[in-house]
Amino acid sequence: MNTSAIAPTQEWPGPDSQADQIVDPPRYGRWFAVLAVATALAWVAFQLLTNPGFQWEIVFRYMLSPSVLTGIAMTIQLTLLVMLMGVVIGVVVALMRMSRDPLLNMCAHGFVWFFRGTPVLVQLVFWYNLAALFPEIGLGIPFGGPKFIEIPATVAISSFTAAMLGLGLNEGAYMAEIIRAGLLSVDNGQTEASKALGHKPFQTFRVVVLPQAMKAIVPPTGNQFIGMLKFTSIASVVALHELMHSVETIYNRTFETMPLLIVAALWYLIMVSILSVAQYFIERHYLKGWQAEVVQPQLQP
Rank of each mutant, 00 (worst) to 15 (best):
129 N>F: 11
268 Y>F: 12
90 G>A: 00
288 K>R: 15
35 L>V: 11
124 L>K: 03
253 R>D: 13
301 P>W: 13
27 R>W: 11
150 E>L: 14
217 I>A: 02
41 L>P: 04
111 F>D: 02
300 Q>A: 12
59 V>E: 06
43 W>K: 09
93 V>T: 10
6 I>M: 15
133 L>Q: 11
152 P>H: 08
203 Q>S: 04
289 G>V: 05
243 L>H: 00
81 L>G: 04
178 I>P: 03
77 Q>N: 09
178 I>S: 03
109 H>L: 13
210 L>P: 03
85 M>T: 13
168 G>S: 04
36 A>Q: 08
106 M>R: 15
32 F>T: 11
266 L>P: 06
84 L>C: 13
242 E>G: 02
122 V>C: 07
14 G>E: 11
226 I>P: 03
145 G>K: 04
230 K>Q: 10
201 P>F: 01
115 F>L: 01
185 S>H: 04
196 A>Y: 10
15 P>H: 14
225 F>W: 13
182 G>C: 01
13 P>G: 12
52 P>E: 08
199 H>C: 13
14 G>I: 02
248 E>K: 14
46 F>Y: 11
206 R>D: 09
191 T>H: 15
221 T>N: 04
163 A>V: 00
87 V>D: 05
236 S>H: 04
281 F>M: 00
117 G>K: 03
276 S>I: 01
149 I>H: 02
58 I>G: 00
52 P>Y: 07
20 D>R: 14
84 L>F: 11
278 A>T: 09
43 W>R: 12
292 A>D: 10
217 I>H: 05
221 T>A: 13
299 L>D: 11
26 P>M: 13
238 V>R: 09
277 V>D: 07
186 V>L: 05
288 K>W: 15
36 A>L: 15
91 V>L: 10
125 V>N: 08
278 A>N: 07
125 V>S: 10
207 V>T: 12
81 L>H: 08
25 P>T: 10
184 L>P: 00
299 L>A: 12
255 F>I: 05
39 T>Q: 09
113 W>E: 07
74 M>A: 08
230 K>S: 01
125 V>R: 09
229 L>G: 00
155 V>S: 14
45 A>Q: 12
223 N>A: 07
177 E>F: 02
209 V>H: 01
163 A>M: 02
68 V>C: 05
108 A>N: 06
82 V>S: 01
158 S>D: 02
58 I>H: 08
257 T>Y: 11
213 A>P: 04
168 G>E: 05
244 M>K: 06
160 F>K: 04
228 M>K: 00
211 P>A: 00
134 F>D: 02
176 A>S: 15
103 L>W: 12
124 L>P: 00
246 S>N: 06
81 L>Y: 11
225 F>C: 01
286 Y>R: 04
107 C>R: 11
244 M>V: 08
253 R>C: 03
81 L>F: 15
8 P>R: 12
116 R>A: 05
252 N>T: 10
102 P>V: 00
